[in-house]
Nucleic acid binder design. Structure first.
Ligand SMILES: [Zn+2]
Ligand SMILES: [Zn+2]
Ligand SMILES: [Zn+2]
Ligand SMILES: [Zn+2]
Lengths: 146, 146
DNA sequence: CCTAATGTCTCTAGCAACTATAGCTTCAAG
DNA sequence: CTTGAAGCTATAGTTGCTAGAGACATTAGG
C-alpha cells in the first residue's frame, strides 16, 4: 500500500490533485491508516494512471468520468468509449486549425514590425484593426453568436 | 455615445464581459448618463476592439493590459510590445506542437479499435497504458482553452 | 400619458481543473 | 525523544468569463 505522496510520485500527479480527484468522486474514497492517512493499492494506482494519461491527451474530467465507468463494464460495447475518443479528436483538430491561423497572423505581425516607436509599431496597429489580418482567426463561439 | 448594449454589439463582446473588463481595470470607468447607465465614446470603442482582437489572437488579459499601456505611449520604443507578441507566438507554437502529437495519438487509438466489447477496446487499453503510445505527448503545459 | 417590454444596474455565485495557504496531526529517521 | 517531512481538513485564489436575482431606466405602442 502506498501513501498519497508515493502514489503521486508513481503516477506523476501532485498530492493535492489526488485529493481533489477523490473529492469530486473521480477516485473512490481511499482506505485509511490507523492515523487517518490515505492508503492506495494497485487498483487505485491503475485508475490514477488512466486518469493522468487521459488528461495528458486532453480529455476533460467529465469525459474521463464516463470512460472510467465504461471501463468498469468490460462486457458492454465499446461504441460509447470510441465516440468519446472521436469527439476528443475532433476537438483537438478544431483547436489545431484555429491555432494554425493564429500562428500565421502572429508571425505576420512580428515580421512586419520594423522596430521603431510605438506609433509605428505594426503589432499595435494590427491588434487595433482586424481588417489588417490575412485570415479569419476569430473565436468560433463569438463569431457564431451575435 | 453608445449604451453598453450597442457597444457590445458593435465590438462583438457580450455586455457582462464589458462590465467585467471595467471591473478589472482593463477599461476605464465609463461615463454615466443621468440615469446612471454607462455611455461610451469612440475612444472606448477602439479600446474594446483592441482588447477583443488581442483576445481572439490568444493574448491573456495580463498581456493585453501591458499592450494597452504601451499603446498609450506612442513615443516609446515598441520593443516591449514586440516581445509580448513574440512570446505569444512562441506559446502558440508550443501548443501547436503538443496538439499535433495529441492528434496523432488519438487517431491511432481510434483507428486501432475494431469496435467490440470494452474488454478489447483499444481506446480503453491505450488510455490505461502510455507505453502503448507512439509519441511522447506528456508534460501537460497549461491547457488553455482557445 | 400609461403601460409593457426591453435594457441596464449592482451583487453574488458558478464553471474547469486545479493550486496555494493555514493550522493542525502523524510518521520516520537519528 | 526530538525534529522535520509528510499528511490531514478547510478555505480561498487562479483565468476569463457567464448566469442569476431583484431593482431601476428607457423606449415603443396604444
Ligand atoms: Zn513593433
Ligand atoms: Zn485579426
Ligand atoms: Zn473501442
Ligand atoms: Zn500516451
Amino acid at each position: 500500500m502506498l501513501t498519497i505522496g508515493k502514489l503521486g510520485e508513481a503516477a506523476g500527479v501532485k498530492v493535492p490533485t489526488i485529493r481533489y480527484y477523490e473529492q469530486i468522486g473521480l477516485l473512490p474514497e481511499a482506505e485509511r491508516s490507523a492515523g487517518n492517512q490515505r492508503l492506495y493499492g494497485r487498483k487505485a494506482q491503475e485508475r490514477l494512471a488512466f486518469i493522468r494519461h487521459a488528461r495528458d491527451l486532453g480529455f476533460t474530467l467529465e469525459a474521463i468520468r464516463d470512460l472510467l465507468s465504461l471501463s468498469d463494464r468490460p462486457d458492454q460495447s465499446c461504441a460509447a468509449a470510441d465516440a468519446i475518443a472521436k469527439a476528443q479528436l475532433a476537438e483537438v483538430e478544431s483547436r489545431l486549425a484555429r491555432l494554425t491561423a493564429l500562428k500565421a497572423e502572429l508571425e505576420r505581425m512580428v515580421v512586419q514590425c520594423a522596430g521603431g516607436k510605438i506609433a509605428d509599431c505594426r503589432v499595435i496597429e494590427v491588434l487595433g484593426d482586424h481588417s489588417l489580418c490575412a485570415t479569419d482567426h476569430r473565436h468560433p463561439e463569438t463569431e457564431a453568436t451575435q
